[in-house]
Amino acid sequence: MQTTLDADTTPAPAHIANHPTHWRNRPFAAHFRTRDDDFDASKFGMWLFLTTEVLLFAGIFCAYAVFRMMYPEAWSNGSHHLDWRFGAGNTVVLLVSSWTAASAVRCAQLNKQKWLKINLIITLICAALFLFIKFKFEYSVKLGDGKAPGTFFSYAFAESPYEILWWSLYYMGTGLHALHVVIGGCLLGWVLYRSWKYQAYGPTEYLMVENSALYWHIVDLIWIFLFPLLYLIH
């Protein structure tokens, strides 16, 4: 494929190049016939897993649709309590992070070890920024107002008795998503640690980078659906 990026051919320092975890020294799983089979199988497995993630969130979206139909006014009131600017800001943060995650994969393929790490770090910063915005400007403010899920709901100015359901689904959906952000961050952090310490990923061994990035994209994608459903439509 034509690319503007050129492969980095700088040799790694000897103590890293000879380490068994360095990407050149990594064997593929012995029960596969070729390295490509191993790679394809693992990536296929990841896609299946991503399918299960989509179906997991499908339950939340389904409940959202049902209750939106049953209590449109509560849903309208609820979404008016959310500030779209924070949601939009977080959307931008996640989109940028998805781009850097994809770039990290490309850098691993081209053996650009430095840019691999830089891209991963930017992704992780975005993950932290997302969680910071979420918790600092949204969760903590709303919880302070009493707009909390279930038994903790104590917001005195609710106009509809069913707003409590809105908040329950809001916290379930975004909370579960935030949990996935944390998991994705851990995966990418692991990739960063290993590329930092061993240069573990390169042109023939970038599966873990790619799978982690795929996971990160699904986290992004789910947010792309959560954002308009919760923040934009009233």
Binding site: A58, G150, L169, M172
Partner: peptide, 22 residues
């Protein structure tokens, strides 16, 4: 199919512990 029961049981646990009301 299993992820759907996953989210269902998760919602059920929260329903029981926090009365989220769904």
């Amino acid at each position: 199919a299993t992820p759907v029961v996953g989210i269902t049981l998760l919602l059920l646990v929260f329903e029981r512990v926090m009365h989220i009301g769904i």
